[in-house]
Design a protein around this nucleic acid. Structure first.
Lengths: 225, 225
DNA sequence: GTATTATGAATGAAGG
DNA sequence: CCTTCATTCATAATAC
């Protein structure tokens, strides 16, 4: 596909510090960013299509449409990080002002109706969705509440655990993550892992291995476990 | 963001033909190949999903399904400790995978019997209770539902008109191609996969540009490396 | 550029 | 089932 060609454009030979010729791909920040976005777009599209598919399958019980013979693979696994980040909505000053005003009006009740209205209004000042508004109020309220708690709780508790306790993460789940480990030129290893929250559909994607015009590849040569 | 960091690891200084220092990303053949594969995989998945969708759509008329935000499961990162502090249950990747599969099987109705079975099965992969399973299904369903309807409503505006006002920050004032067109470094324009044989679905994905969570992106702004 | 903070979004669980 | 709350994660914004 086109992308392949794209990548090949980046292929160049370069010289390292010692002046030795080494074959590497050189990309500018911009190009890299571009690539990232591309992948992100794909990821998004996939997610949405999957959701649609799921919905459709549910509405009519024709599970038979499934492409049949497939099986799930260690294809993509959920790793800790996502390569496909979604940018989040950020209220514009105007929107924020309006939101704050509404919030202060006491109508702390974010009813469905209200949400719609508000969304419509804010839409005049920038992209926004009802979900954004909803979340905003939710967070706003929670935050307010917490603020008060931080001051009020006196010293009844000999222990303050309201805030971040320790940086320790949670338990390490099972290991079923196969990630795309990439060894960097510097010798380090990093992961480019896909998120997979739709295992069943991916399982239908088996033939996805019938890749492009090149050699058959093994997506995840070495599984991380 | 994570990816940024990851990608930045590739950043090294390199010298060009003239011996001038330039900041570029250096990737090995292996790395590039890996990236290429990733993109190829996504492209393929998109095609497949679209094919499925089309098949399903053909059987029932359903159009304009849009989805809002996507999210990649948090997934706790590994941690050293697993103290007592687990207030709420968090499905392990394996459990989640199983749950998703079951959910997708259409039996959206979580019967008591089922719950027990599922709980038992999931118990093999981590702590879990029937309540957890029950809640999970409840939430999963609600969430899914809302997602689909949330983005569907009144939308006469089919035009990408994200006129981000003042707060605009880093959005490129640059022309952002409508839809998923991406401009290649060669100046050409290409569409992310599928476009050619699935125009219908393609149009359903229109929101990719209009969604509030997405910022306009021009795939290949201007590169000529 | 890196570290820290603020806050949008996701999600398990509870209430009705 | 649907709505709401509490908690947590990840990222944009900002400080250093």
């Amino acid at each position: 596909m086109e992308l392949q060609k794209q990548l090949q454009r980046w292929q160049q030979s370069s010289t390292d510090a010692n002046g030795e010729l080494m074959y590497v791909k050189v990309m500018t920040d911009e190009q890299l960013e571009t690539l990232r976005k591309q992948i992100a777009v794909y990821a998004t599209i996939c997610d949405q299509l999957i959701e649609m598919h799921r919905t459709l399958s549910a509405q009519q019980d024709l599970a038979g449409v499934r492409l049949g013979n497939i099986y799930c693979d260690p294809l993509m696994a959920s790793g800790g990080h996502k390569i496909t980040s979604r940018q989040r909505w950020t209220p514009t000053p105007v929107q924020l002002q309006i939101l704050e005003r509404i919030f202060d009006q006491g109508n702390g009740t974010p009813s469905k109706e209200k949400i719609k209205e508000i969304t419509a209004e804010l839409g005049q000042h920038g992209q926004i969705s009802e979900t954004n508004v909803y979340n905003w109020f939710q967070n706003r309220r929670a935050r307010s509440k917490r603020k008060l708690q931080n001051v009020a709780p006196t010293n009844t508790e000999s222990e303050v655990d309201t805030e971040v306790d320790s940086k320790d993460k949670k338990t390490k789940p099972e290991d079923f993550q196969s990630q795309l480990n990439i060894t960097t030129s510097s010798g380090g290893t990093q992961k480019l892992c896909f998120q997979n929250h739709n295992p069943q559909v991916y399982s239908d994607m088996h033939y996805l291995n019938t890749d492009s015009n090149n050699k058959p590849y093994s997506m995840f040569p070495s599984d991380a476990t």
